[in-house]
C-alpha cells in the first residue's frame, strides 16, 4: 500500500514533466496539423546546449537556459520558415517526412559531437527530498519539475487566450482562410507557434536533463512520450496535455511497481496503444470539440 501511494504520487509529479514535454507537439499539431517527428530531438538538443553552457562552461544554470532559448528559437524559426513552411500546404506527409529528416540530422550531429555517452545536467535540487517519511518520499526535483511544468502550461494557455499573438494562432488553427482575411499572415503565425513550442521544449529539456540521463538518441523516446501525452489529452488541447501527462506518468510508475522496472516504459506504450485504439482522437476529444 505504501508503495502504491508512493508510486501514484511520483506518477502525478512525473506527469507534470510529461505534460511539458508534450505541450509543444500539441500546439504545433493543433495549429498546422504537423506531426513534428523532430520534437523529442529538439528538446534533447536543448538539453545538450544547457549542458554545454552550464556544466562545461560553468555559466549559471538560468543564464544557460536563457542563452539556449535564444539559440533554439533561431534554429526553430529557421527550420519552420525555410523547410516546413515550404511543404506545409502540400498535405501532411511531406511535412512529416521533412521533420523526420530533421530528427535524423539532429541525432547524428549530436552523436558526432558528443559520442553516445550518457549526460546529465546537475541542478540545485538533485538528491534532495522535500518529504521523507518511512512510507513515502517526494524528491525536490520531481516536485520542482511538476510545478515548473504546470506553471509554463498555465502561462502558455493565458498567452493563447489573452494576447493577439495567441489569438492569431488560434484563429489560424480554426480557419486558415478566415485568418488571412483578418490580415493574419498564417505562414508567419506558424513560425511564431514553432518558436513558442521550442521555448517550452527548452524548459522541458532543462527539467529532463536534470532528472534523467540523456543520450543523443534519447529524443525518440521522448517523442513517443510527447505523442502519448497529446494523444490522451487530445491533439491541440493545451490543458489536455496535463491530463495526458498525468495518466501516462501514473500508469508508468504503477506498471513499474507491478511488473518491474524493466516494464515501466512498456506499460506506458501499451496504455497509449489501448487509448489510441478506443479513443483515437483523445480522451477529451468530445469536450474539446465543443
Amino acid at each position: 500500500m505504501d508503495l502504491f501511494v508512493s508510486a501514484v504520487i511520483q506518477g502525478v509529479l512525473l506527469g507534470g514533466l510529461f505534460a511539458i514535454i508534450g505541450v509543444g507537439l500539441s500546439l504545433v499539431f493543433g495549429i498546422m496539423g504537423l506531426t513534428n517527428i523532430a520534437h523529442g530531438d529538439i528538446m534533447i538538443l536543448a538539453s545538450f546546449f544547457i549542458m554545454v553552457f552550464s556544466v562545461q562552461m560553468g555559466i549559471n544554470l538560468f543564464v544557460a537556459l536563457a542563452i539556449t532559448i535564444v539559440v533554439m528559437v533561431v534554429i526553430g524559426a529557421a527550420m519552420q520558415k525555410f523547410l516546413i513552411n515550404r511543404v506545409i500546404t502540400k498535405g501532411a506527409e511531406p511535412a512529416l517526412l521533412v521533420t523526420f529528416g530533421i530528427s535524423i540530422i539532429i541525432q547524428n550531429i549530436l552523436t558526432l559531437i558528443f559520442n553516445a555517452d550518457s549526460r546529465i545536467i546537475k541542478g540545485p535540487f538533485s538528491d534532495v527530498n522535500v518529504v521523507s517519511t518511512n512510507w513515502v518520499s517526494i524528491s525536490a526535483e520531481y516536485l520542482m519539475n511538476c510545478l515548473v511544468a504546470v506553471g509554463v502550461i498555465i502561462a502558455l494557455s493565458l498567452v493563447m487566450k489573452k494576447t493577439y499573438l495567441g489569438r492569431s494562432i488560434r484563429a489560424a488553427s480554426s480557419n486558415v482562410t478566415a485568418a488571412e482575411f483578418m490580415g493574419v499572415n498564417t505562414l508567419k503565425t506558424y513560425v511564431y507557434a514553432m518558436c513558442i513550442a521550442v521555448v517550452t521544449s527548452c524548459v522541458a529539456g532543462l527539467l529532463v536533463g536534470q532528472t534523467f540521463v540523456f543520450y543523443p538518441y534519447s529524443g525518440t523516446q521522448y517523442l513517443i512520450i510527447a505523442f502519448g501525452v497529446v494523444v490522451i489529452g487530445g491533439m491541440g488541447s493545451i490543458v489536455g496535455t496535463l491530463l495526458g501527462g498525468l495518466i501516462l506518468g501514473v500508469s508508468q510508475l504503477l506498471g513499474a511497481l507491478f511488473f518491474g522496472n524493466g516494464y515501466m516504459i512498456l506499460i506506458g506504450y501499451i496504455v497509449m496503444l489501448v487509448l489510441l485504439t478506443f479513443r483515437p482522437r483523445g480522451l477529451l476529444s468530445n469536450m474539446a470539440r465543443k
Binding site: T35, V231, G260, Y263, L266, L273, L276, P280
Partner: peptide, 27 residues
C-alpha cells in the same frame, strides 16, 4: 488496433508498437 488509427495516428501507432517490442524483447 492499428487499423482503427488514421493518418498520423497510424504512423505513430506502428512506431510505438515497434518501440514496445524492443523493450519487451529486452526483458
Amino acid at each position: 488496433p492499428i487499423f482503427k488509427m488514421r493518418g498520423v495516428y497510424f504512423t505513430i501507432g506502428t512506431w510505438i508498437v515497434a518501440e514496445a517490442l524492443m523493450i519487451f524483447f529486452a526483458n
